[in-house]
């Protein structure tokens, strides 16, 4: 941790104390982890039968050595990525459309768009999926994709609008005074800048979109979680449930951490000089959004809780 304005530089005593505290924390955390692993590794009594612990090879062997198992997991990952990719493309298109309508000079267009946007933003994606599934009878895949595209499109649209609002007024005025129409000004001058400025938020939102494809589990689309935790666990039997859970978790973490890392890199590249801040919290994307945008939208990864 680099020197913070809030602290004095630690002297020898403070350093020693901090080192001792660190050691204690490390010991406590390691002890906790060891306890969890140990408990899970214990053989279990169930209805008079002793089952092997969760890390016992018999709980892994049948899965890990079966190529068909990995084929099925691969199809699950593919299902997740496919839904996420199509929904992301849709969300970008819908986002641009919403931002255009929302900033229209005509109240007839603007006001209904605002209401529709608020409606979509205020309601859970899961509900939207169920709605599309039951009312549209589209099948689970399209229910997931369409709901994610509309919902995230609404959020991206709002981000783009905030980006347009935060542009200097002169940009628009210059465009208009050059004889461009309003629409041309918006498309050729305001949008490209707003888009670039909001790129970190948009990318973070797309990462969230990927995470949200997991809701397909609930509406019956065979993405990763449904494949492993539902289909494969009933195929191989309940005793592999925990193993399957661990495998799923690792796959998700691998995908999402990679994507978040890319998003963070993008955020940092786009705004090379982040304003100095009080807390030096390490490699956070949030810090790279200084100024009014950060206040308007929270940090990009926060804005993307939903």
């Amino acid at each position: 941790m680099s020197a913070s304005v809030l602290f004095d530089a630690p002297g020898p005593r403070a350093k020693r104390r901090s080192r001792i505290a660190s050691a204690i924390v490390i010991v406590v955390v390691l002890a906790g982890l060891a306890w969890i692993v140990f408990t899970l590794a214990q053989p279990r009594e169930s209805g008079g039968i002793t089952l092997p612990g969760y890390f016992d090879w018999t709980r892994w062997e049948k899965l890990v050595t079966d190529p068909e198992f990995w084929g099925a997991v691969g199809r699950g990952v593919l299902g997740t990525l496919q839904a996420a990719a199509i929904a992301a493309a849709g969300a970008l298109v819908i986002g641009v459309l919403f931002a255009l309508l929302r900033t229209s000079p005509l109240a007839v267009v603007r006001v209904p768009t605002t209401i529709v946007l608020e409606f979509f933003r205020g309601m859970p994606v899961l509900l939207m999926m169920l709605f599309i599934l039951l009312v549209g009878s589209t099948g689970a895949f399209w229910a997931v994709v369409i709901a994610l595209a509309i919902y995230n499109g609404a959020l991206i649209g709002e981000a783009l609008r905030a980006g347009i609002v935060s542009l200097p007024r002169g940009q628009r005025e210059a465009g208009l005074s050059l004889g461009l129409t309003r629409l041309q000004t918006k498309l050729q001058i305001e949008f490209p800048q707003a888009f670039r400025q909001m790129l970190p938020i948009i990318v973070a939102q797309l990462v969230v979109l990927l995470k949200d494809t997991s809701l397909g589990y609930i509406v019956g689309y065979n993405e990763l979680i449904r494949t492993t935790m539902n289909n494969l666990s009933s195929f191989y039997g309940n005793r592999y449930l925990f193993t399957l859970f661990l495998i799923t978790l690792v796959i998700y973490l691998a995908i999402n951490l990679t994507l978040s890392w890319v998003a963070r890199r993008l955020a940092r590249r786009r705004s090379p000089k982040a304003a100095p801040v009080l807390l030096d919290g390490g490699e956070q994307g949030g810090r790279a959004m200084p100024g009014p945008l950060a206040a308007a939208n929270g940090n990009p990864e926060n804005a993307a809780t939903e």
């Binding site: 924390v25 490390i26 995470k211 979680i225 390490g282």
Partner: peptide, 20 residues
């Protein structure tokens, strides 16, 4: 040590889908 424990906690939970 405290801050890295917190960082790991944050990263782990933020990158796991709520469904999971």
């Amino acid at each position: 040590a405290l801050s890295s424990v917190a960082a790991v906690y944050t990263e782990l939970l933020r990158n796991t889908p709520l469904t999971l």
